[in-house]
Write a protein that binds this DNA or RNA. Structure first.
Length: 256
DNA sequence: ATGGTAGATACTCTA
């Protein structure tokens, strides 16, 4: 079973790239972030023609997450239980083939110690509480998405450039580490050792051309699911296309 | 200290 995560930066504008990518990569489950698509406009039929059922929660212009699956999707939860209609649409969870999948678009934070930054830190506390309250660390649990946090030195193209900066600051990494402490393994790092690969390159300042990237898109797994993992790769091919998303997919394969 | 680009929206915000 193959599970992928991809921040598409607008699903509707990316459909012409998503369709051939899924035809080639053939993920059984594809978790999307930044769909920027209200539920009424979600391309359910087009995705069904590609072989996927969809569960989604979106809003106008910003945010939005979805789980696409070739297998039945059950026990869907959209956003946290203490969210309301005005809350940004950043989380969707569901069970597919016995795996509890939690797909997150973790807040960007904008700038250190702004309101949006403290919202990010608080959101990560709530994410940890979600696992404490509603998930069993002894089961197959997968947390994935655009985390907007690079966890280690190897995950940024330049440590001096990023030290203390948004996406790599200590408070963000500590908040993310607290989530990890629930029982997660960073699957890409676990299976690939100390390689340096990135999943996001800023559109600006020639970041892609200079490989000035960050690894901020992640697949984290609970112990029983880690034991069933076979591979975890970052597929850079969509980032080479004209008008790409600034993120590229991360794909994991399991013996399930 | 600032700007560089992209997307959605409607002349600005978010990333």
């Amino acid at each position: 079973m193959k599970i992928a995560t991809w921040n598409v930066n607008s699903l509707n504008i990316r459909m012409p790239q998503l369709a051939p990518w899924v035809a080639e990569a053939q993920p059984d489950v594809l978790c999307l972030q930044e769909t920027k698509c209200v539920d009424e406009n979600f391309p359910v039929d087009a995705l069904r023609e590609l072989g996927y059922e969809s569960e989604f929660i979106g809003q106008k212009s910003y945010n939005g997450v979805a789980i696409l699956s070739k297998f039945p999707i059950i026990d869907v939860q959209k956003n946290f239980l203490d969210d309301n209609d005005e809350s940004p649409k950043r989380m969707i969870s569901a069970t597919v083939n016995g795996i509890k999948i939690v797909n997150t678009y973790i807040p960007n934070g904008t700038d250190l110690w702004t309101d949006k930054f403290t919202f990010k830190l608080d959101w990560l506390l709530r994410l940890r509480r979600y696992f404490d309250d509603l998930c069993d660390a002894g089961r197959d649990v997968l947390l994935c998405g655009d985390f907007n946090v690079a966890m280690e030195d190897l995950d940024v193209w330049s440590v001096p450039r990023w030290t203390g900066k948004l996406h790599f600051s200590m408070p963000e990494r500590a908040a993310m580490f607290n989530v990890k402490q629930w029982g997660f393994t960073d699957l890409f790092r676990h299976l690939n050792g100390n390689v340096q690969e990135f999943s996001w390159w800023d559109y600006r300042a020639g970041a892609w051309q200079n490989n000035h990237g960050l690894r901020i898109d992640h697949i984290w797994t609970s112990p029983s699911l880690t034991a069933k993992s076979k591979s975890c790769v970052i597929d850079k091919t969509p980032r080479f296309l004209e008008k790409p998303s600034d993120h590229t997919p991360v794909v994991a394969e399991f013996e399930i």
